[in-house]
């Protein structure tokens, strides 16, 4: 399966930030905090230090591991006060990378842009794969799957949202970037403003308009499906 064979890029990002000398102490702390999210691979670090960092994307086993972990919490019916933690985790990885390996990136904006885009691709690819597994799973399972749908959210929405976001980019590039950075990249309005070189206020109104536009598109998709 495509997902399983992906190279662990988030792990690589972590590995990179934790790679050398004085960071050994941090490495220990990180292992403790993020557990299996950190997979240090010397060969990967070496490859990245040879200047291939730009191809690094937070794709990967680590994202899927995190997804699975969160999914299990949902299954156990635990309230997910997880939002902050998740965002913080993505952030931390990004920020450390930006802070310590700046030379590999044109600038912060470039980095955040690429990282959010990568997260978008991973999650949407994954949602598509789930949808395909669900639909390709044989006729006898269809009714059961339908019966199992809990609430309106899920893989379909993520894929539909992705499509709508692509359509939005045709109308307003910056608004689609705001959504990508916030929804997929987990950035705050201030950070997005910094990346796109506009005020946080502009980011906020871009976000509100884009959000309404996207939600209306999603409603239309649902209506036309029925």
């Amino acid at each position: 399966m495509a997902i399983a064979t992906r190279t662990p890029a988030v792990a690589r990002l972590f590995a990179l930030t934790l790679g050398n000398g004085k960071r050994r102490r941090n490495r220990k702390a990180y292992r403790k905090i993020y557990g299996d999210l950190i997979t240090v691979s010397q060969s990967v670090i070496a490859a990245m230090e040879r200047g291939r960092l730009r191809r690094a994307r937070p794709t990967d086993a680590a994202v899927y591991d995190e997804l699975r972990r969160m999914a299990r919490r949902y299954m156990r019916g635990q309230p997910v006060g997880h939002t902050l933690q998740t965002t913080a985790l993505i952030h931390e990885a990004y920020l450390r990378l930006v802070g310590q390996e700046e030379k590999h990136w044109e600038n912060r904006a470039h980095f955040f842009g690429v990282a959010a885009q990568a997260m978008r691709h991973i999650l949407v690819d994954h949602a598509r794969a789930r949808n395909m597994a669900k639909r390709g799973g044989g006729a006898h399972q269809v009714s059961l799957d339908e019966a199992l749908t809990i609430g309106p959210e899920g893989s379909d929405d993520l894929v539909a949202l992705n499509d709508a976001l692509t359509a939005l980019a045709e109308l307003d590039q910056r608004q689609s970037q705001v959504v990508e950075l916030r929804f997929f990249g987990g950035l705050t309005e201030e950070e997005i403003g910094e990346v796109l070189k506009v005020s946080a206020r502009t980011v906020r109104s871009d976000w509100r308009l884009a959000r309404s536009w996207l939600l209306r598109e999603l409603d239309k998709t649902v209506t036309s499906d029925k």
């Binding site: 969160m70 919490r73 299954m75 998740t86 789930r130 959210e153 939600l215």
Partner: peptide, 27 residues
């Protein structure tokens, strides 16, 4: 759409994906 309540897009994408995955796992 400004006046509607909690929306899918207000949560991080990672959470939306995790919830979808939970549904599949329960299935």
């Amino acid at each position: 759409y400004e006046t509607r309540g909690e929306r899918l897009i207000d949560q991080p994408a990672l959470e939306v994906a995790a919830r979808a995955m939970a549904q599949v796992m329960i299935g």
